[in-house]
């Protein structure tokens, strides 16, 4: 897979040092110069290595605090790793969550312009795609309303519609399938499947194991910053559920999962 990998991460480590006694102000430094601030080193990631193939749909799961978001932020270039290397081949999406850059005091129109610009669209592209963005979000009627008045579902729809206009080869997503009503989630799934068909690479961090099973070709399980399992979604998810002592709450959803599985079968390459 080496020749066609989109992301190669080797021995990624990242620690955050969290001061026990917060010395946020100079006064505390001056008044207590001898009191050493004790730091707790929180090893968020420890020698994490993996590869994501080009055009692969890659899932990352794990309990809260296992390092999933830190990993995604390092891949995106938001955090700097302490050691290890990341090699990214292709255009990365610049955001890892939807709705980045939204300002609730501004109108939907201004937010499309602001967020679109932040995500790399030119003024001309924005003008061309403006109607398309609003139509996909089904928010044409609310264009001149402030986002303050939007429901969380409406916000998500707008965020998603802008995000899919951004050109990228590799999409990094942190817990994006948690909100929105069912029909919109369905729309999201379909768009993600389209993105996959277009040969783009997706790294999805999620607690929604059903979505991960449904969408991903390979899944990595992180725990305490260490890769604990990496492989087929059903196997990794089963291992994770066994460790956590939880069971699939919706066993009836399994047929749908099998159904979408078949979607992947006719995609060239298939699960690696």
């Amino acid at each position: 897979m080496t020749s066609t990998s989109a992301i190669t991460a080797v021995d990624l480590s990242k620690a955050f040092s969290i001061p026990h006694e917060t010395r946020g102000t100079l006064r505390e430094h001056v008044l207590h110069p001898l009191r050493r601030t004790t730091h707790e080193r929180n090893q968020a990631l420890q020698e994490v290595s993996f590869e994501v193939g080009q055009g692969e749909f890659f899932g990352v799961i794990g309990p809260n605090g296992s390092g999933k978001s830190t990993l995604l932020r390092i891949l995106a270039g938001i955090y700097a790793q302490d050691s290890g290397t990341v090699d990214v081949r292709g255009r990365l999406s610049p955001f890892i969550e939807l709705g980045v850059g939204f300002n609730l005091e501004l109108t939907a129109r201004d937010n499309v312009v602001l967020t679109g610009t932040l995500l790399g669209l030119t003024r001309q592209q924005l003008d061309e795609k403006f109607d398309e963005i609003l139509a996909f979000a089904e928010l044409e009627r609310f264009i001149d309303q402030k986002l303050n008045n939007f429901s969380s579902g409406m916000l998500l729809r707008l965020a998603y519609s802008i995000a899919i206009q951004v050109p990228f080869d590799i999409l990094l997503l942190d817990e994006v399938l948690a909100v929105g009503d069912e029909s919109f989630q369905e729309k999201c799934y379909r768009t993600l499947i389209d993105i996959r068909h277009a040969g783009k690479t997706v790294v999805l961090v999620s607690h929604n194991l059903y979505a991960v099973a449904r969408l991903c070709e390979r899944v990595m399980l992180l725990r305490n910053g260490v890769v604990e399992a990496l492989g087929r979604p059903d196997e990794v998810i089963r291992a994770y559920r066994e460790q956590e002592g939880t069971e699939d709450p919706w066993p009836a959803a399994a047929p749908a999962f099998e159904e979408t599985k078949s979607v992947w079968e006719h995609v060239a390459g298939g699960p690696g």
Binding site: A80, S83, R89, T117
Partner: peptide
């Protein structure tokens, strides 16, 4: 030792990057 390398499939020239920053 650590490094992050981004090689762009469609190399984005400096002018593009500057244009983005200015926008």
């Amino acid at each position: 030792m650590s490094s992050t390398a981004y090689s762009l499939a469609k190399p984005s020239p400096r002018a593009d990057r500057l244009g983005y920053c200015l926008r």
